[in-house]
Design a protein around this nucleic acid. Structure first.
Lengths: 179, 179
DNA sequence: ATATCTGCAAAAAGTTTGCTCTACG
DNA sequence: CGTAGAGCAAACTTTTTGCAGATAT
């Protein structure tokens, strides 16, 4: 997370992504979208995101890279990318829509209803059961999604909801915690 | 105060529910809520609802029964009932929250990607698995949702396995709107 | 060139809240 | 009777939009 604080140009800091040419930016081009500077930044931020940022958060991260970006543009871009199938809008409650790159592979979400934190996990057993259920109903399972809303079992009374950078919690079993 | 002085004899095959004493109203009482006239009406509307109405729609239906109800009250009531676990809030996109009685039994949706038809089903095994997964991640499963997108198997035959926990509950539910 | 995009701010849309009066228990 | 609830409208939030100037292809 967190990008290198540079403006546009190639910042060879991250693994294999630069602001100027991110995976999502490439997808945009492939979809015939006009690539402006702000779109490239937003695409980069989205490519880098390991979590499920809402518009405000995307705006914050994008602004850090290029202050000439307005929230309106983030909203417009995000809607555009969703229509193109590049992004997926998630509703984890809380009133704001959150976004995630479609290319991130299949996984499920468990939302902590108290903190709003989102945990991603994979589970083959679940996939199998869902496929079985679909079959019993006479269908081939083409795709699916599942969201769990839960409350922490132990007694943790911290609620912090700051949308700071992804907070890495303790170790998780199935997968990593993301917000 | 009351509500409409006469019972709302919803003809048809509708269940036996009256404005004054609906299943949800009874749940409210059980939860120790003060039952006002408007709450009774809203509870009745919710009990009668076979779909997932949003606040505006609830307000419309409730107003038809008692014009002295305000939107604010619907919002407050709906939030109250959700906190009590009597209602479940759904996010089907579109910006507005939709509500559904918890007592309607938890069900899932299987969407036929070719026809767009939605089949509702229940599955205890699925509930169990999801609860288990949540527990493994350290959470108590409070609510969840799952949507399957499938394509009808044409050549295959329905294998009515004995383990068919999946029971098509109410395919007859029509009304279809929303996305 | 020129149709599209962006920033800004105002407008929508949905939901919450302060205050006063009403009414449930 | 006392306290929670209801109405009304203003306040809030999140998202959209109109317009004039900027920009990608």
């Amino acid at each position: 997370m967190v990008i290198s604080t540079k403006k546009m140009g190639r910042v060879s800091a991250a693994p294999s992504t630069t602001v100027g040419d991110s995976p999502i930016a490439r997808l945009c081009v492939k979809h015939g979208l006009k690539m402006t500077g702000q779109r490239r930044v937003i695409a980069y931020v989205l490519s880098e995101a390991e979590d499920h940022p809402d518009v405000e958060e995307l705006y914050r991260r994008a602004s850090a890279l290029d202050s000439r970006i307005s929230v309106a543009t983030v909203y417009r871009t995000v809607r555009l990318l969703e229509e193109k199938g590049i992004l997926e809008r998630r509703d984890f409650g809380g009133g704001r829509a959150r976004y995630e790159a479609s290319e991130n592979g299949h996984h499920y979400h468990l939302i902590d209803i108290d903190s709003g934190k989102v945990i991603e996990f994979e589970n083959d057993e679940l996939v199998g059961l869902l496929a079985k259920i679909a079959a019993e109903l006479g269908f081939d399972l083409m795709s699916h999604r599942a969201e769990l809303f839960g409350r922490r079992i132990s007694s943790s009374s911290q609620q912090g909801d700051s949308a700071a950078d992804a907070a890495v919690k303790a170790a998780a079993r199935s997968s990593g915690h993301k917000e």
